[in-house]
Design a protein around this nucleic acid. Structure first.
Length: 570
RNA sequence: CGGGGUGUAGCGCAGUCUGGUAGCGCACCUGCUUUGGGAGCAGGGGGUCGGAGGUUCAAAUCCUCUCGCCCCGACCA
């Protein structure tokens, strides 16, 4: 491709509304153009990277035995009513009416359509397992799209769905998919880590997320530096608490006058105790009713864990205005003793502790020496708090570390959640009708490209890993002399003939502009042809990574460059 | 959905308080000079000032309504 004939225009200044580096660089380098909030045009340069990643994903999916198909982006609401998700999915689901006033939606995922497809075609255990995938545009009407391709509304995702007669068979495919995902990210030179994850709205029994570690990541990931334990912070557990009961005897329960101490920090300061020796009371509202959750004063409640424990569809902090009514205690002084709350949960870290300091359910009053079982009903114990950095690993006890990560892939064991609701069954050896056991596997195409940029850039621009670089080499023609022009043209031709994906910068621009653009776009290799070195019969090449310039005769440089490219393709 | 901000040329911004012929930088066009890290000079083109209504002799500027976008929060296969 000749740049002078191409559709590629860079921006000298950062776009005003870009909030992460990958978005800034993609817009500045002419890869991406915003059309509306969370909705983008992939310009020719950006599309090249996406398509290259898609090819890699296809190769790995096919290698793992998955079969490609393409389902509609616009789907009938009917199927989603059948699965129950028409109601469950909130405002994030973009609902559309056609001219006959029938319900449709722009799909955020495709469990319903694939299940509908498979139940029609497959009737026998002999036809299973099967693993089908597509690479398709999805839409999720995010409340707040941001971070460019990392959290758009319209986005491209590879999604696969597998169908099985047994959990063992699902396990096999699940492992194959995990391996395939790791291979995809490794080929893109992405430092990634698979972690245990919550199954969220999709549901299912097990789930792993593939995280690319990056400062700008939206998720927090807990990871053990010693063993392989890794988990999303929503899900991560630790063993920081002791289950050994305190030897101390129970003391008398006694009110403490604690005026003006609504926060746990205030109470600690007022009483001269570390917050770890206090008990914090949280109150939530959910579809299962109001619950009180007790956690150690220095710990944070984990909404996901609580929600899962309750089996609730939704859970949120109870608004202050409803506190008195639901618990009988004022905000800041609420507690389990004499509360109106019907269910009281307590984090396991409290189980061994005695003589709690806790809200007294009266203004300006806390209680000391409160003991469950004696002063109030024994609460339901469980893991309801979020892991902190330094907490011991649940598997090996090593202090855990916390990182930021970008979720680029997510695999789920769905089980029979959809097959049962949608009657997707097969006949087993005994002629019995059985629901198929399902798995599903998502991989964000745009997000992965964005993650690659987040992980690989410098002050001057992107530094592409070879496999997803929009072009592998830029041939920069410096100056307009005939021999420069001819040599650049010749080098470009020969690289193309050697199967190298090269772009010839034949624009009528000054050298500085061309170099800056090349750095910004981040071509992994650059070949520069200019009168200066050409006078000695030499041309120059360098890697974007280190920019170390090397000179040589053009035939040698072409060979070297072609070798470098091939060596880095993976 | 709550709080805050913003909308002026393709991009980045000033002008709004205090109403009086719409500006700057980048990009674009022409010419000359320049040519190995975002050139200089001269000339030029391009804007319903987000939209609607109102006040006024006069509105980018004041008032009302509305829409888009951004940030924080809640939310998130």
């Amino acid at each position: 491709m000749r740049w002078s004939q191409y559709f590629l225009y860079t921006l000298r200044e950062d776009p005003a509304d870009a909030d992460v580096i990958s978005q800034k660089l993609m817009i500045r380098s002419g890869m991406l153009r915003k059309v509306a909030a969370g909705i983008y045009t992939y310009l020719p340069l950006g599309l090249r990277s996406l398509k290259k990643l898609e090819i890699i994903v296809r190769e790995e999916m096919n290698r793992a035995g998955a079969i490609e198909l393409l389902m509609p982006a616009i789907q009938p609401g009917e199927l989603w009513m059948e699965s129950g998700r028409w109601k469950l999915y909130g405002r994030e689901l973009l609902r559309i009416k056609d001219r006959h006033d029938r319900d449709f939606l722009f799909a955020p995922t495709a469990e319903e359509v694939i299940t509908d497809t498979v139940r029609d075609a497959i009737n026998s255990y002999r036809q299973l397992p099967i693993n089908l995938y597509q690479i398709q545009t999805k839409f999720r009407d995010e409340l707040r799209p941001r971070f460019g391709l990392m959290r758009g509304r319209e986005f491209t995702m590879k999604d696969s769905y597998s169908f099985h007669v047994s959990w063992e068979s699902l396990d096999e495919t699940y492992e194959k998919m995990r391996t395939a995902y790791s291979r995809v990210f490794t080929r893109c030179a992405l430092e990634h880590v698979p972690v245990e994850a919550d199954t969220g709205n999709i549901g299912g029994s097990a789930s792993h997320e593939f995280m690319v570690l990056a400062k700008s990541g939206e998720d927090a990931v807990v990871s053990c530096p010693n063993c392989k334990y890794g988990a999303n912070i929503e899900k991560a557990t630790s063993t920081f608490f002791s289950d050994e009961p305190e030897p101390a005897p129970m003391t008398e329960i006694a009110p403490l006058h604690t005026p003006g101490t609504q926060s746990i920090d205030d109470v600690g300061k007022f009483l001269g105790k570390p917050t770890s020796q206090l008990v914090k009371t949280l109150v939530f509202d959910s579809d299962q009713g109001c619950v009180m959750v007790l956690v150690r004063g220095d710990r944070e409640g984990n909404l996901i864990k609580i929600k899962n424990y309750l089996g609730a569809e939704w859970l949120e902090m109870l608004p202050d205005s409803r506190f008195e009514n639901e618990t009988g205690g004022p905000v800041g002084y609420c507690g389990p003793v004499g509360t109106k709350a019907k269910r009281v949960l307590a984090d396991v870290s409290l189980r061994a502790q005695k003589n709690w300091v806790i809200g007294g359910n009266k203004p300006d009053t806390h209680l000391g020496g409160a003991n469950p079982g004696r002063d109030f009903a024994e609460p339901e114990y469980g893991d309801f708090t979020t892991v902190f950095a330094g907490d011991p690993c649940p598997r090996c006890g090593t202090p855990l570390e916390i990182y930021r990560g970008i979720e680029v892939g997510h695999v789920f064991k769905l089980g029979t959640k959809y097959s049962e609701k949608m009657n997707c069954t097969y006949l087993d050896e005994g002629g019995q009708r059985q629901p198929m056991i399902m798995g599903c596997y998502g991989l964000g195409i745009g997000r992965t490209v964005a993650a690659a940029i987040e992980q690989s850039h410098d002050n001057d621009g992107i530094i592409w890993p070879m496999p997803i670089a929009p072009f592998e080499v830029v041939v920069t023609q410096i100056g307009r002399e005939d021999n420069v022009r001819a040599t650049a043209e010749d080098v470009y031709r020969k690289l193309i003939d050697a199967g190298i994906d090269a772009l010839l910068d034949d624009r009528d621009e000054r050298p500085g502009v061309k170099f800056k653009d090349a750095d910004l776009i981040g071509f992994p290799l650059r070949v520069a042809v200019g009168a200066k070195s050409l006078a000695n019969g030499q041309i120059e090449w360098s890697l974007r990574k280190d920019r170390a310039k090397q000179l040589g005769a053009s035939a040698d440089v072409i060979m070297r460059v072609a070798d470098e490219v091939r060596g880095r393709r993976v």
